[in-house]
């Protein structure tokens, strides 16, 4: 796993601990509490990170390549 990916995952984990919205009850779009909206956005951010990881940090182990070729 690349160092960049480790760092990005660490950032996601830090962002997950959103102490800044802990006691904030504002509604986003008039119906969704901001704490819930933030974490829903974090789920989308996680998907984007994983898309990036599958594109740029795909494992390069030789045995995986061999298994792909043997198909």
């Amino acid at each position: 796993m690349s160092r960049t990916l480790c760092a990005v995952i660490l950032v996601l984990i830090v962002l997950h601990q959103d102490n800044w919205y802990w006691n904030d009850g504002r509604l986003v779009f008039g119906f969704i509490p901001i704490g819930l909206f933030y974490h829903a956005c974090l789920s989308i951010a996680a998907a984007v990170v994983w898309w990036w990881a599958t594109k740029y940090c795909w494992p390069t182990d030789s045995y995986l390549a061999a298994e792909e070729e043997s198909r």
Binding site: I9, L12, I13, H16, D18, P33, G35, L36, H39, A40, L42, S43, A46, A47, W50
Partner: peptide, 16 residues
């Protein structure tokens, strides 16, 4: 609403 962060968004990061 905290259960989403505790159980769901955490799983989105860690499961993947």
């Amino acid at each position: 609403i905290g259960v989403y962060g505790m159980l769901a968004s955490s799983s989105g990061i860690i499961h993947s």
